[in-house]
């Protein structure tokens, strides 16, 4: 997890904790999971771009 993701995750946790309504809290915490998933997907896609670009046979 990047520093920015960690910071964002804390921000969402704090915001969620301040919500009185259970369903509102649920929304923010679920959003946190999607953001974490975005991070993972970005990293994987970035890795795939690197892997496909690194083609010594085409040098």
């Amino acid at each position: 997890m990047t520093e920015q993701s960690q910071w964002l995750s804390q921000q969402i946790d704090q915001l969620a904790a301040q919500q009185e309504k259970f369903t509102d809290r649920a929304f923010w915490l679920a959003l946190k999971q999607v953001v974490a998933e975005q991070d993972r997907r970005s990293e994987q896609l970035g890795g795939e771009v690197d892997g496909r670009t690194w083609r010594p046979d085409r040098w």
Partner: peptide, 11 residues
């Protein structure tokens, strides 16, 4: 939070 979410989506 919304803007970071949106940036991630675009990325």
């Amino acid at each position: 939070i919304a803007s970071v979410f949106e940036q991630n989506r675009e990325q």
